[in-house]
Amino acid sequence: MFRRLLEPSRQVTIFVNGQALIAAVGDTVAAALLLTGNTRFRHTAKSNSPRGPYCGMGVCFDCLVTINGEPNRQACLALVQEGMEIMTGAAAPKLAAYKRA
C-alpha cells in the first residue's frame, strides 16, 4: 500500500479496468495504480502467478499493463494522461487458446 505525502497540484482522470480514477500530472501509470492498493498488475504466462511492479525503472517487465488498447506497456515508464484507459490482470494467451482458434 502507498500514499501521497503531498496533495498533487494538477490532476487528471484515468480509467482503470473501466473505473474512473484521479491521478496527478507526473505520476507514472505504476504509481497511480499502486496508490489505489493495486499491486497485482498481470499474471505470468507460465505459472499464471500474479506480478506487480518490481524494479520501477523499466528493467524487469513485471508491471506490464494494457494502455489505450496497446498490450504489454511498461506501467513504470508511461506517464498518466487525461482519459487514459488502463487494463490490468492480463496474462499472455496460452498456446491452447491458439490451437482452439
Binding site: F2, D27, L34, P50, G52, P53, Y54, G56, M57, C76
Partner: peptide, 26 residues
C-alpha cells in the same frame, strides 16, 4: 517469494518518492 506482488526494490520505492512524493503505507 521475491516475485510476490508487494515485493519491489528499494530503488523502485525511491523512484516513487522522487517522481510523485509517494511512500509506503502499512
Amino acid at each position: 517469494g521475491w516475485t510476490l506482488p508487494g515485493v519491489m526494490t528499494a530503488g523502485a520505492a525511491q523512484t516513487l518518492l522522487k517522481s510523485s512524493a509517494i511512500a509506503p503505507e502499512g
